[in-house]
């Protein structure tokens, strides 16, 4: 994973609440054995009409939104399944951060593992940001703050470990592998306990 320290971008807005993983990437696109190319199918049922033609009004089809890397969405974003295909599809669209007043647990977890920053802010702030999608927001991972063009700063919660991983581009697999000795000790102790209990 590459290091993630700062981000500056205008926003794409999807105001709907409860945007679930079936909307982010419908199940029929899960029949894949790689992580790549899912962006094309992200929000497929909202982006295209029944005949497969792009809907001009859908934000990700609008030319002025091209290249924007922050998504602002309604409350309870990412609810539903554990499919990591959801953050894969969003990062494949070029997104690096999602702002919402609530983000589902498994989605948040999966997002962080793929360099997609979940940002939870108060509902009132999210509502305000949604009205100004063209504002370029500045996100600082080290300080876990978001800055608006008028200079206001909003702190968002970010687990210390997740922050370190993002800032240093550390991946969790490497961290766990480095604890192989502790894992072996645990396994031996537990087998003894179970043998004793049994």
């Amino acid at each position: 994973m590459t290091a993630f320290t700062q981000l500056e971008s205008a926003c794409v807005v999807l105001p709907n609440e409860n945007i679930d993983t079936d909307q982010i990437i419908p199940a029929r696109f899960l029949s894949t054995t790689t992580r790549k190319g899912l962006g094309e199918h992200a929000f497929s049922d909202w982006r295209r009409d029944a005949s497969g033609q792009p809907r001009a009004e859908f934000p990700f089809n609008q030319p002025h939104n091209a290249g924007r890397s922050i998504l602002i969405a309604g409350r309870n974003f990412g609810c539903g399944s554990s499919r990591e295909h959801a953050p894969w599809a969003l990062t494949d669209l070029g997104l690096r951060a999602v702002i919402s007043s609530q983000i589902a647990d498994i989605f948040r977890n999966n997002a962080l593992k793929n360099g997609l920053l979940p940002i939870v802010l108060d509902e009132a702030i999210v509502q305000e940001l949604m009205l100004r999608p063209d504002d370029v927001l500045h996100i600082d991972v080290a300080g876990n703050t978001l800055r608006t063009p008028d200079g206001r700063r909003f702190a968002f919660p970010l687990d210390a470990f997740a922050r370190t991983c993002l800032l240093e581009g550390v991946d969790e697999m490497g961290y766990l592998l480095a604890r192989a000795d502790a894992i072996s000790t645990f396994e031996q102790r537990r087998e003894q306990e179970l043998a004793h209990a049994g």
Binding site: I106, N109, K113, R179
Partner: peptide, 20 residues
């Protein structure tokens, strides 16, 4: 509980997960 595909890899390789 359910996990994502990266975590499937973590459990395969280490039989462990990072959890709060």
């Amino acid at each position: 509980f359910g996990i994502g595909t990266s975590e499937v890899g973590h459990v395969l390789a280490t039989q462990c997960l990072l959890q709060r």
